Each structure stands twice: as C-alpha cells, then as structure tokens.
Computed example of a mutant assay.
Amino acid sequence: MSLSTHTTQSGFLLPSIHSAPPFFTQQPNLATQSILTEQWTRLILAYARYRRLFILRIEDAETTGNEWDEVLRNERINRRILPSHLSHILASMVATNVAAYEPAKQTRTVLLYWRLPEEWAEVLHNWATSTAQLNTILTFYDITDPPIESELSGIPLIGVADGEGVRIFAGGR
C-alpha cells in the first residue's frame, strides 16, 4: 500500500504518515519514536482544533465508536494505536506544555491546548468586541454558553470561586 493522504468522514485531511503501519506502533529506536511522537502530537492537535475537541482519554484508544476513531485507527491498513503508545504520546504532550492531565492527579485524560493562551485571549477579546461586551462583567457561563454560538462555546475554562467572573477591557493588547 502506498502512503497517501486521506479525507475522513468529518472532512479532516489525514497526513500520508497515517497510512504507514509503523506510525501506529511504539518504536524501539528512541530517535525514530521521537519523530513519530512529534507527528502524533501535530496530528492530535490539528484534529482536536478541526473538531473542537478538548479532551483525549486513553480509553479512546481502547474503545471504538468515539470522536477520536478517525485519528486513532486506520481501518484501511487494519491498524490502531495501542493505549500504552497513546499514554507515551500524552506524557510527551504534557511535558511540552501542549496538554495537561485533567484532573491533575492522574495520567489517563488530558486537556489539549490546540490554541496558545494568547490566541484564546485574542479570540475572547474579538468576541467581546463584536458582541459589545467590553467593559462588562461576565461569568464563565456567559462566555462558554453565549446566546449566539461562538468560538468560545463549550470551551473548558478554569473555574474560580463562586460569584467571580471576567471583565474584558478595551485597552492595550
């Protein structure tokens, strides 16, 4: 089978490396595995951004029928990533600050950072500007569940004590 890109049912374009059987296997050569881990990291983050997914679990590699099937499996070559390999990749993603274990005291579920905090701040500021929310005190609920769908809809935000909110100022970015 030749390596080729493939468009998934959701419309995401998988890179040609996704057609290579060794891509789905943890490699004994550390240099090779490092390259594959970087490629898996890019693929996971790109797919998460495309599908607006924030959470990835080891269980997603163990079960079928979930939102990660298109990436974690390749039925065309009869391959899937093993949970131990995904665990290694997630640990690397946490170590390079593109993911965080959520909740913090376990290693089976990560929150994916497919946008940098600065990018989310820009999205938040643009949303506040376009919806006339500047200089308005908002709750996290107001931001993550707005009346009109936005890029911030459903985003997991860090929670704070009850009653606290966010105020977005018009000033210097």
Rank of each mutant, 00 (worst) to 15 (best):
F24R: 02
N29V: 15
Y47D: 01
I58M: 07
I35T: 14
Q39H: 11
I44P: 00
L56Q: 01
T32V: 15
R57E: 08
T41A: 02
I35W: 13
G65L: 05
L53V: 06
A31V: 13
D60S: 06
E38V: 14
T37N: 08
R52M: 07
T64M: 00
T32A: 14
R49N: 10
G65W: 06
A46I: 05
T64P: 00
I44V: 07
A61L: 04
I35C: 13
L43T: 09
P28R: 15
L53Q: 07
R57T: 04
P28G: 08
I44H: 00
F24T: 00
T25D: 10
Y47Q: 01
R42G: 05
D60V: 01
E59M: 08
L36V: 12
S34E: 12
L30C: 11
F54T: 04
S34M: 09
S34P: 03
Q26R: 13
Y47G: 02
A48V: 08
N29C: 14
W40L: 03
Y50E: 02
W40S: 00
E62F: 08
Q27N: 12
F54I: 06
E59K: 09
R52I: 06
L30V: 11
L53P: 00
Q39A: 11
R49M: 09
Q27I: 09
A46R: 10
T25R: 13
A31C: 10
R52K: 10
F54Q: 09
E62R: 10
I58R: 07
E59T: 09
L45F: 04
Y47L: 08
T32G: 03
F23I: 01
S34I: 06
A31D: 13
G65D: 04
L30I: 13
